[in-house]
Design a binder for these strands. Structure first.
Lengths: 187, 187
DNA sequence: GCCGTGTTCCTAGCAGTGCTAGATTCCGGA
DNA sequence: TCCGGAATCTAGCACTGCTAGGAACACGGC
């Protein structure tokens, strides 16, 4: 009885450590440094153990990091908007979103560039729906506007990360987006 | 004399064929299928020849595809906007941009996900400036609005490609973006 | 306590990757 | 015709993701 429980607990621990190691390693040295050998090294087990937890291999590990990231993002967005209304809510949402992307570039990359997690589908995970829900409710409950707003934020985040847009204008760019989205939501 | 010219011409030809092969292969089977061995096979030379043309290796080849893509995108945007004014110009720009991304997904991925080409820097290639210039002039010559507009279009393109946004609402989403950008530009 | 049993884990290896040192072939010029 | 230098290829390195096979271990029944 208790033995089974201990085993299950150890297994869950190891599962979590794999995901955490992948995230940390990616955040430290970029995703190209995340290899199954290094991952196995970090959790102090051999490579094949990884496949016992993630039959899909490396891709599935990246997807797990991405999924956890969506959960964190949703939390961050909800916490930022909480209690605010109107333009202040839109501004808080924008800042929270872009700060998240800037502070966790590797996780953000996993979420949007690397992992192939369906979004606009029936089997979309709850964490993804929650994040989108935060954007939608802040923008007045309009699905289309939420999609466009999310796209604008995502575009800014990626262009900024790739250096396609100067770092200097960041503050004013954010204000501009807030203006646009708030005006559209108010209408 | 003439021999040297012929050699230079052949070299330039081969250079172009490498880039074209990479683009085609990526568009047919995705970038993960683009390997130096397959590329060498397609141009009917051995692998090391690639490095004579692109000392930076595969990354430099991808960057070349991306750079050519920026040229094509700039042309497409300028041609679409040509002669139009006001909302019609913004709509044409939006359609041209999103159609380009949808029709050449691999090239678009090279431009924004794979290649690390500086943008907002002094040594930004001309093709990149031209594309941005088309967006800026269409949106009233405002640098910040152009950046935000570009971000919105880029965000829509990538979210759409990743299936993060339903295919059904595409038309209305485009109209929405056009509304937002046109309103902001008119102000 | 002991012994089969089944799970858990590791070692070793495969095929494929980007890239390169060294040998080889080729070709223009004398 | 032959030589010298450039152009090109063969073979190999270190790495990748992934897996088959065997070894070691802990468990339950006697």
């Amino acid at each position: 009885m208790a033995i089974q429980e201990r085993k299950a607990r150890e297994r869950a621990d190891r599962h979590a450590r794999i995901v955490a190691s992948a995230r940390d390693l990616a955040e430290e040295q970029g995703w190209e440094a995340v290899t199954t050998r290094r991952l196995a090294d970090r959790i102090e087990y051999s490579q094949p153990v990884l496949y016992g937890h993630f039959p899909g291999g490396k891709d599935e590990i990246v997807a797990a990091v991405a999924l956890a990231g969506f959960g964190e993002l949703a939390e961050a967005l909800e916490a930022a908007v909480d209690g605010r209304r109107g333009r202040a809510a839109v501004a808080a949402l924008t800042d929270a979103y872009l700060d998240f992307a800037a502070e966790r570039p590797a996780v953000y990359a996993a979420m949007f560039d690397l992992a192939a997690i369906p979004f606009a589908a029936d089997d979309t995970p709850a964490a993804l729906r929650a994040g989108f829900g935060a954007v939608r409710s802040t923008l007045g409950g309009d699905d289309e506007l939420a999609e466009v707003g999310w796209a604008a934020l995502h575009g800014l985040a990626t262009l900024r990360r790739a250096g396609r847009v100067p770092a200097a204008g960041e503050t004013r760019r954010r204000e501009r987006v807030v203006d646009l989205l708030h005006a559209a939501a108010a209408r």
